Simulated scan of single mutants.
Amino acid sequence: MPTHSGSARYEGFGKDGKGFVSTQSGALADNPYGFATRFEDEPGTNPEELIAAAHASCFTMALSFALARAGYDRGTLDTVAKVTLDKDGDGFSITKSALELRASVPGISADDFTRIANEAKAGCPVSKLMKAEITLTHSLAE
């Protein structure tokens, strides 16, 4: 199985430092991050946003494959992951990733969709990696 990488560089320290994050694929290349992008409104990214994107994309792909295995061959899945960063003593912890899913899958019953979505959540590699509480709310378009 392949190994994928990401990298980060930080220039300066603390609140005044500036970071840059990149991915092996080049999808991100020296994207800025730091205190102001994490806790204020400065443009750039932050670790929680990147984890949320990873969780949403991993879960959505897992669900897509689970639906295909169940015989469904068309539809749309839109997932938003909201990652919560909470104060934890002198530091912080990621305590929750809430997946919000809106789907359109012609011909599926609500019960079958719920079962398949929950199985995909349980099997998603990023869900397995995280120790945070993971919730899934979903709606199925008619």
Rank of each mutant, 00 (worst) to 15 (best):
T3K: 14
H4L: 15
G6E: 02
Y10C: 03
E11W: 07
F20W: 10
S22F: 00
T23L: 08
S25G: 09
A27S: 13
Y33I: 01
A36D: 15
D41V: 03
G44K: 13
G44W: 14
T45E: 14
E48T: 11
E49W: 05
I51P: 04
A54P: 02
A54W: 07
F59C: 01
T60Q: 01
M61H: 05
L63S: 01
L63K: 00
R69V: 03
A70N: 08
A70M: 12
G71F: 01
Y72R: 09
D73M: 07
D73P: 04
D73L: 08
G75N: 00
D78R: 14
V80W: 09
V83Q: 04
V83G: 05
D86F: 06
K87E: 12
K87F: 02
K87N: 09
D88Y: 11
G89D: 12
G89L: 01
G91M: 09
G91R: 08
S93Y: 10
T95Q: 06
S97K: 07
E100W: 00
R102I: 03
V105K: 02
V105Q: 00
P106I: 02
S109Y: 08
S109M: 08
A110W: 04
D111P: 05
T114R: 11
A117I: 14
E119C: 02
G123N: 13
C124N: 02
P125R: 04
V126I: 13
S127M: 03
K128I: 07
K128G: 08
L129I: 05
M130Y: 06
K131Q: 13
L136N: 04
T137F: 04
T137Q: 09
H138T: 15
A141H: 09
